[in-house]
Simulated assay, not measured.
Amino acid sequence: MIEKKKIEIRIKDKDIVFYFSSAKDKNKPILFIFHGHGYNITPAQFISENYNVVCPMDSYGYKGLGSWYLGESGDLFWLEAMPEILRYVREFVGNGRLYMWGSSMGGYASILYGHLLRAHAVYTNIPQTILLGSKYSDNGMLKFFQPIFGDRDSVYNDLRKVINYRTPCKYFLCFNQLEGSNYFMEQGLNFISHLHSLRQPMYIEVRPQSNHAKNHGISESINLFRKFELSK
């Protein structure tokens, strides 16, 4: 039976928690699963003999509901935590390919750390790609975004400024076209156009829906990776 372990590391003065379950064999792929906004003490339940599964838990930010896996008041301690988590995991499971999965806030994190940690592929559902200065921020999310950066300007506010060169990573992006706050244009099309300008490999799915909700589950996303032969 596969066991999911709770692990805690100390970064600066912060306790960073993640859950980890290992694959049956060494050097299998590593899959990071990032939860969405609204902290829940229960990690994703996905486990697999074929994937080493890592679930970082973001209990920081406004009322502990999430800091977009960045940090608080301009101290972006998650940027130090994530490479340390990956280093810890690789010590036990080897050098399998790295994959990222996330939705909404977790989608932002999957894109960011997929780029920074050189993931092989990323699946991201309805992600935020720009935080402050977006209509999504103006229509109720400002109180969650502002405490992340404080009074500091940050390149991490806009993922187009972070991803400024082509990498081998393949992006699987899913959006709901009719969502409010001009979401598909600001968070989707603008980012997609940016990736296209870099000739970044990507798979785009747009659904004629108005809700802000997950479309593909984790197993379905893995099947998409397999369909495009990314796990070989």
Rank of each mutant, 00 (worst) to 15 (best):
K5T: 01
I11S: 07
K12T: 13
D13L: 01
I16R: 06
I16L: 09
F18V: 05
Y19K: 03
S21H: 03
S22W: 01
L31E: 02
F34K: 00
F34A: 04
G38H: 10
I47A: 07
I47Y: 08
S48A: 05
E49C: 08
N52K: 02
D58Y: 01
K63C: 06
L65F: 10
L65H: 05
G66P: 09
L70G: 01
S73H: 15
D75K: 08
F77K: 03
F77R: 04
F77Y: 02
E80F: 03
M82L: 14
E84P: 00
L86Y: 03
R87D: 13
Y88I: 03
V89T: 13
R90M: 02
V93Y: 08
R97T: 03
Y99R: 14
W101C: 10
W101N: 02
G107M: 14
A109P: 12
S110Y: 06
S110H: 13
L112Y: 11
L112W: 12
H115E: 13
L117S: 05
V122W: 12
Y123W: 14
T124S: 15
T129N: 07
L131W: 06
L132P: 10
L132H: 05
L132D: 06
S134A: 09
S134G: 10
K135R: 15
D138H: 09
G140C: 02
M141G: 00
M141V: 05
M141N: 10
F144P: 02
P147E: 11
I148G: 00
G150I: 06
R152G: 02
D153E: 15
V155D: 13
R160L: 00
Y165K: 14
P168A: 08
C169H: 06
K170W: 08
L173V: 01
L173C: 07
L178W: 12
S181M: 11
S181G: 06
N182C: 08
N182V: 06
N182F: 04
Y183M: 00
Y183L: 03
F184N: 10
M185G: 10
G188Q: 04
F191H: 07
I192D: 03
S193H: 14
S193R: 15
H194L: 09
L195M: 01
S197F: 02
Q200L: 09
Q200S: 10
M202I: 13
Y203K: 07
I204W: 09
E205T: 09
E205Q: 11
R207L: 07
N211S: 12
H212T: 12
K214I: 15
G217L: 02
E220F: 10
S221A: 07
F228R: 05
K232Q: 08
